[in-house]
Design a protein around this nucleic acid. Structure first.
Length: 132
DNA sequence: GCCAACGTTGGC
DNA sequence: GCCAACGTTGGC
């Protein structure tokens, strides 16, 4: 089981859209590094759903279909994700940045990356913030 | 809305 | 294959 973070521009695809759709193809990733992470994802992996611009994690989705080529553009591929749940409270980038032991995250180091791994330790810690 | 930090393109 | 110019993303 691996953990990830997926960024979405809320004006394009918001958490509300995700809840309504329940299952959706995660397409439109056009960055080489992000694509390579998509390829590494497996069914049942969990992903934070992050709103860019608002800069906060709002929910959790799971991978329900592994990497497959996009039918319209064979140079790139997608995965499918399913809504798991909304976080009890959203967790902002500012808060994440306030912890030194989270400074290694690509979320902090590579702001432009839209799809990235989250190690289990960081995943558990961030989820723990939810209850506070 | 601005701009830093990338990624991409194309002329050489 | 280098790199200048340009385009894009996302945090602020």
């Amino acid at each position: 089981m691996q953990y990830w973070l997926l960024k979405s521009e809320p004006h394009c695809w918001s958490w509300a859209n995700q809840i309504e759709a329940n299952t959706t193809s995660w397409d439109g990733v056009r960055n080489y590094q992000a694509q390579s992470y998509l390829k590494e994802m497996h069914i049942e992996d969990l992903c934070f759903f992050y709103h860019s611009h608002e800069c906060k994690i709002v929910g959790i989705v799971s991978v329900v279909k592994a990497f497959y080529l996009d039918s319209h553009d064979m140079r790139f591929g997608n995965i499918d994700v399913q809504t798991i749940r909304t976080l009890k409270r959203s967790i902002g980038l500012k808060e994440i940045k306030s912890f030194d032991h989270l400074s290694h995250l690509a979320l902090v180091r590579q702001s432009r990356l839209s799809c990235m791994p989250i190690d289990k330790k960081a995943w558990d810690f961030i989820l723990g913030l939810e209850a506070q």
